[in-house]
Simulated assay, not measured.
Amino acid sequence: MADSLRDRVTKFFQKNIANQVMRRMPFQTLLETTGRTSGQPRVTPLGGKRIGDEFWFVSEFGDRSQYVRNIMADPAVRVRINGRWHRGTAHLLPDDDAHARMRTLPQFNNLGVRAFGTNLLTVRVDLLD
């Protein structure tokens, strides 16, 4: 399915402006995946919540998100939480109620997902360290 104009504008803004700024913030939560074509690390700022040895978040574009596509190819990821990197394994949970899940996550982080999300997908990362 083709992306809407709103999706394309949102992705452009996130990739070229917001993500560039957010990556530099020392305590911004970051997700590092391995590029499915390049094999290079790809870092994406995001919001979510650590619950025990799991980190939960909701992707606003689901399987149209580049980092979700990277997870589909290789679920080994790293997550930076409060300035510290953790290795983990990501699991895509299409049967999880993403709207209900967002009610359990920090509300500020969900603003963009709520405003621009068109294909919500819950992701759980099982943290290894």
Score class of each variant (00 low, 15 high):
R23W: 00
Q20H: 06
R42I: 11
G62M: 09
I81K: 06
P41S: 03
R114N: 12
V43L: 08
G83K: 13
D95Y: 12
L105R: 08
Q40L: 07
A76N: 14
W56K: 03
L46N: 00
Q14A: 10
L128R: 05
D63S: 11
G88N: 10
G48N: 02
P75D: 15
L92F: 14
F108S: 11
R103G: 04
L128V: 06
T33S: 04
S65K: 06
R23G: 00
P41C: 01
F12C: 10
A73C: 05
E54L: 03
D74A: 10
V68L: 07
V77I: 09
M102I: 12
R64T: 03
L30V: 08
R87T: 08
V21Y: 15
D3Y: 03
L120R: 06
D53A: 09
L121I: 11
I51W: 03
R69T: 06
L111K: 09
R42Y: 07
D7V: 02
N70Q: 05
P106V: 00
Y67C: 07
P75I: 15
R101N: 12
G39L: 02
I51D: 06
L121A: 05
A76D: 15
P45A: 03
M22H: 06
N70A: 08
F13T: 01
R36D: 01
L105D: 10
F12T: 00
A73E: 08
R36P: 00
V43G: 00
Q107C: 13
G83P: 11
F116N: 05
L120C: 01
P75E: 14
L5D: 08
V43Q: 12
A73M: 03
M1V: 13
H99Y: 15
E32R: 14
G88T: 09
E60Y: 10
